[in-house]
Every structure is written in structure tokens, then in C-alpha cells.
Amino acid sequence: MRFADTRAAARPRLRHRHGHRRRIRALAVLAALACAPGLAAGCRASGPRSAADVGVGQVDPAARSQLPPEILARGLVTIATDPTYPPDEFRQSDGTLVGMDVDLARAVGAKLGVRVQFTQVQFRDILAGVQQGEYDIGVSSITDTTRREELGDFVTYFQAGSSLLVRGGNPLTLYPDDESLCGHRVAAQEGTVEVDPVLSSRSAQCVADGLRPITTVVVAAEADSRAAVLSGRADAMFEDAPIASYETAHSGGQLQTAGDQIDKAPYGFALAKEDKPMDDAILRAMQDLIDDGEYAAILSHWGLTAGRVPAATLDGAIN
């Protein structure tokens, strides 16, 4: 989840494992993530999809007609992404850009009858780059929130929460929804909602309950969180549930998720604020992908069907 809110969030009430405090209502875990790439035998293969496999020949004239004239003239949509979040967006060993978001963006481009061009950008800079006109869209597992909607528009297309990763066997008995994290070191990537509000609000509740705060180990990249846990610099880490499932599947048993995912929220394609033609074009194209089954096929390919939504929405933040 990207672009952390800078204002304080309401503190969650932490659950005491001995029953003395009210439990946070935990959200259901993404069961279908059991079929995330490499997680279990019998799951659908999740290798890269060729651009030729995505949405070819399915131009929606009505959606295309909504595009701004300058985009129609150049026949190209520029997309900012941070490809360090498998299986959503990442690079293979040969540098090929793949992932759920990559496939969805290409399919949207096919609906609009334009080419898509990805630019690798640090996620903390994506939203600002879109608002400043450097890119047409930001597509990078970006969580839509009401505060972010004050700065930009979002076409939502997926649901995901945050997961807590710990060392294999969970030796410190840590969970995301109780007081067990109080006094511990938890890593999260700079600028994500895992830093704020997920960790900041839980740490504040620890203090309010007379316990030690959580020490947030802020890192520059997702891989740094993993390294911090495995090296002992952090006791646990938070990251988006789809990425957490992928990480555990590829950790050789060194990492595992603890408890259920929390704070489930929608992902959105980030767009410039109140750019109605672009909003309408992307919204219609995404809805067409949902209606014609291409959306479901892409999610199934990446083992992410549990995050499926029935309809695309404009500015559909939950909180």
C-alpha cells in the first residue's frame, strides 16, 4: 500500500491475548493467495504474460472517445510504477516487467486503443509525478484513501490489506491485531500505509494502554524490510498481503505470515485531480475488463482472485 497519509489516524484498539482488551475486528485473509506464485502444487502457473496475450483486438470506442485529445494524438499512455512488489509489479531476472498490475494496465491500454509505456519510479514519487503531469497514470498497488483523493483521482480495481511477516515458526509469538507488537521493532517501507497509519496508530495505542511503543524500522525498499527481519534488526515487518504471500512462498521457510491481514482497502490507478476525460476513459476501460472476463483471467493467472471486486469505481476509498 503506497503513499502513507501524513495526518494522524484513529488508533486501533489492540487485543490482549489473555482476553482483557477488546479484539480488533480482523479482516478475512486472502484465501486464494494460497495459489500465489510458487506457493503450492496444483495452482495455476504464474509465469509472465506476453503483452500480445492481454486485451488484443478489444478496443472500446466509447472509452477511447473519452481520452484527452493529446493522448489520442500521440497514441500512448505513460505509466509510472515501482516494480519491486511481486506478484503485483516486478522485473524478472532478464529485466522483463511483469505482474498483475502490469497486465491490467496493458489491458486497459488495449481497450483504449493506445500503447502503454512504463517508467520505473520510486513509489513515494509516483503520485506527485502524476499530479505534475510527468506521467498520465500511476499503477503500482496504490491504496486509495479519502485523504489521497484530495490530491488526485483513483479508479479502484482490487482489494488488499496489510500482513505481518515474522521469522519462520513465529518465535516471538507476534500478531498484527493485539498487544504482542508493543515494545518490538517492526520494519516497513518508507511512505507506505504500513508506516502510517498501520504502525503509527498501533504504537499510539500501546502507549495509551501503558505499554512500550512499537519501534518502527523505516526502510527505503521492500527488500530492506525482509533483510532487517532475517538479520535480526527487526522482529517483524508489515507489507501488502499479496506481496507478503509471495515473500513467504519464496523464503524457503525463513518467513511466514502471522495472523490475518488487517485494514483491507482498495487499490486504484492514480490520475490527475479532476481530469474528467481521463477519469471516464480509465473507469470505462477497467469496467469493460471486468465485464468481459479479462480482469478475472488476469487475477487468476497471478493467484490473486481473492482481491477481485465486482465493479470499478471512481474515488472509492473506504476510509
Rank of each mutant, 00 (worst) to 15 (best):
E222P: 08
C35I: 07
A73P: 00
R2L: 14
A34C: 08
E247A: 14
A285E: 02
I79T: 04
F269G: 00
A36T: 14
F158I: 04
G55A: 15
S245G: 14
G109M: 03
G293I: 05
C35W: 05
A4K: 03
P277N: 05
I71S: 02
G152M: 14
A285N: 06
A160H: 13
K264M: 09
A8D: 10
G38H: 03
I126Q: 02
A31I: 10
A10S: 09
T81M: 04
Q131S: 13
A220E: 15
A227H: 12
G303H: 07
Q92K: 13
V186T: 01
A306P: 02
C206L: 04
A10E: 13
V218N: 02
G152Y: 05
R15G: 15
S180L: 08
G152P: 00
V121L: 11
E222T: 14
T81I: 11
R2C: 13
A34F: 07
R212H: 11
R7S: 15
A223Y: 10
S141V: 10
D288N: 11
S251C: 02
R13S: 11
T78V: 03
V116W: 07
F118A: 04
A63G: 00
Y135M: 07
V102S: 01
P48F: 05
A297W: 07
R17V: 12
R21I: 11
S141W: 06
R91Y: 10
A281F: 06
V59I: 15
Y246L: 10
G268A: 05
V198M: 05
D292P: 01
T81R: 03
R21W: 14
T257N: 04
I24T: 11
H16Y: 11
L211S: 08
G19E: 05
G152K: 01
Y246I: 01
L289Q: 04
A204V: 04
M278L: 15
A31C: 00
L112R: 03
L271R: 02
L27G: 12
D94E: 06
A306W: 07
L72S: 12
R74P: 05
Y135H: 12
V198A: 13
H18Q: 10
L39V: 12
A52V: 06
L289S: 06
S300V: 02
T84L: 10
V219K: 09
E134I: 12
S300K: 15
P242Q: 04
V309N: 03
G253I: 11
E239N: 13
P86F: 10
Q120D: 14
A312I: 09
K273V: 08
F123L: 12
I137G: 05
I214K: 01
A10K: 12
H301N: 04
A128L: 04
I282E: 00
D196Q: 15
N319Y: 13
G253E: 10
S65H: 09
S231D: 14
E150K: 03
P197V: 09
D224H: 11
Y175T: 09
V116T: 15
V139H: 09
V121K: 03
L33K: 00
A265D: 07
R64W: 03
Q66W: 09
P197T: 08
T215S: 12
V29K: 09
E222N: 15
A297T: 11
H250I: 06
V121H: 03
F123T: 08
F123H: 15
